[in-house]
Design a protein around this nucleic acid. Sequence first.
DNA 1: AGCACAATCTGAAACGTTACAGTTCTTGCA
DNA 2: TGCAAGAACTGTAACGTTTCAGATTGTGCT
Lengths: 359, 359
Amino acid sequence: MNDKTPPDENADQAAGGEANPPTLKTIAFMTGLGVTTVSRALKDAPEIGAATRQRVQLVARQIGYRPNRAGVRLRTGKTNVISLVLDTEEQVGGFVSDLIYGISEALAQTPYHLVVTPYSRNNDPLEPVRYVVETASADGVIISRTEPDDKRVRYMTERGMPFATHGRTHMGIDHAFHDFDNHAYSVEAVKKLAALGRKRLALLAPPSNLSYYHHMRDGFADALMEHGLSEVPFPMATVDHSIEDIRKQTVELMRRPNRPDAFVSGAGAGTFALVAGIEEAGFRIGQDVDIVSKQSSKLLHLLRPQLYVVNEDVRLAGAELARAVLGRIAGRDIAALQSLSKPKAVEAYETPAPGKSTD
Amino acid sequence: MNDKTPPDENADQAAGGEANPPTLKTIAFMTGLGVTTVSRALKDAPEIGAATRQRVQLVARQIGYRPNRAGVRLRTGKTNVISLVLDTEEQVGGFVSDLIYGISEALAQTPYHLVVTPYSRNNDPLEPVRYVVETASADGVIISRTEPDDKRVRYMTERGMPFATHGRTHMGIDHAFHDFDNHAYSVEAVKKLAALGRKRLALLAPPSNLSYYHHMRDGFADALMEHGLSEVPFPMATVDHSIEDIRKQTVELMRRPNRPDAFVSGAGAGTFALVAGIEEAGFRIGQDVDIVSKQSSKLLHLLRPQLYVVNEDVRLAGAELARAVLGRIAGRDIAALQSLSKPKAVEAYETPAPGKSTD
DNA sequence: AGCACAATCTGAAACGTTACAGTTCTTGCA
DNA sequence: TGCAAGAACTGTAACGTTTCAGATTGTGCT
């Protein structure tokens, strides 16, 4: 038993005083088995005896063995990394934090790590994706800001890189995604505003290159039609514009003779600017104008209870996206990895605990 | 030249049709040099001739050589990874996004990747740090929610893991950090409120286990003293509490006979709840009560121009923290890697472009 | 001419893992 | 009894890199 390996190698492990992390060799030495057997036993390979398997796994657990990621990666190419590709110009508002938390939570029970790969909106969005694929630095990728015809989707599909998108595409390529149903959202929003008697609606839309621009806009148009309402075009502002820009554009819009009497807003932060602009122009929310807004944080109602909101659970989106990439990596069927999150009902502000309310 | 390496190995490279990424061996074959020489030439080792060095580097650049991370990591232990340890219960408000963007930007020009290592506030904060250290899965760590006597700091110092903290400690261990000067912040805030004629101030403080609780509180106390003002204790709410909790506690506080006539708030999201609570209790910002708030997004003024704000640049903090860990990894002196961000002046709302203002 | 020495280059080994191609031992069956 | 087949295990090589210990030159000096 003692002569099967060169003595000096075992010495390291036998000394025991050292605290360098245990490797397969450590376990091999402790169990008297070969490194290959240990490797196999740990991954429940069929050609290992049940007794041996258990013994190896017991020892591994006892000494706190963890496979060396670099070793595995070098040998197999498997990185155990999911890359989240992020636009660093992204508007504030907690959106990204929640996405990251959601992904992290889903990844916590797995051997996967989350690495954030940034890019600037001004540069080519394909660039970071190409980097990840070319350097094989992740087993799967999550992207957002999905476009109807998205070259990143095409690229990763061609290169066989598993991925999931936050948002859908319309390019004849089937892929894993999670999306919020923005069509349903704006339909509900318009319905609410119609019920309130509003007639002339404006939409604070996403930038027109993104997929969900079309969903939100189509839902908006469909619902306007259905309720016999008209649209006041508001193309000078999108949720991507700066808060300052949106506010200014809103002021201008509200000073026009054909101003809207209601808004549907595609993003919480944008709604702050909308409200500010509307009020700066001299109108009042809930009276002159109604607004339905999507929000991912719960802040809007605190300062403008007159708003109507629909909450988007971005943390859930993160978890779903993680689930989806992991599924693709495991080779699961795409159809099972596509999810659409239906908006909850439009919420008005509920007056809090009984007592005096604001004057 | 042809007989120095086994023929089959070169065949791979010579075939050329394959698109597998170039390695040192590829360059070695192309230049006719040994792998060792190539490795050395690429890192400007002194024992390589100038001509050879240039030739190798030229070829490497031409064929787009990138060192295989797994190979480097396995051999040297260097991961080229910075781990950002995050509390996933963190309040919304864009704070974390900006931190990540700041770090990402600073890391973009380096070979470092950013991995997000999450933990729940309810579990042991040391746990994720121990994981990173034990598995040597990063070359450096960034932590937030720093405590005066922080066991993570002690642990990483003992184990020789380079790190930087967002926030300072007071435990006799010198280490890299970046911090916002919350002492100065609350001094300025109180000064502002004193100038407005406020007398009875309350503080929406951080949780008392965090370092910046003490800074903010001390600055608050010092300034109260200096201006001869008094404090209305408000210990039932901290910036860590949920929006809902803060709102409720604020309502209660404002209904007491000894209610405050001003607040200093340690966080933007908390301020939303403060405002809501104050107004729900029937008081008005700017009239019955004044508030000075820190904020990392620019949303507060949009809906309550009466607020006074101090902006905290969290993106900058991220960049500074990245700079600091990288410095530690490079062995730079700790003293050069400690930075404190002074608050800008307290800002009142500037009325925007000339025109009608809100009624 | 002989020799030391620097300059420049080199192969082999190692990091920890897995895949491949065995090797040994039992067992079942002709 | 002999032998094939399976069960259980093993060593070697390889992934791409860096380090170690040379090897091969050429140059200057005596």
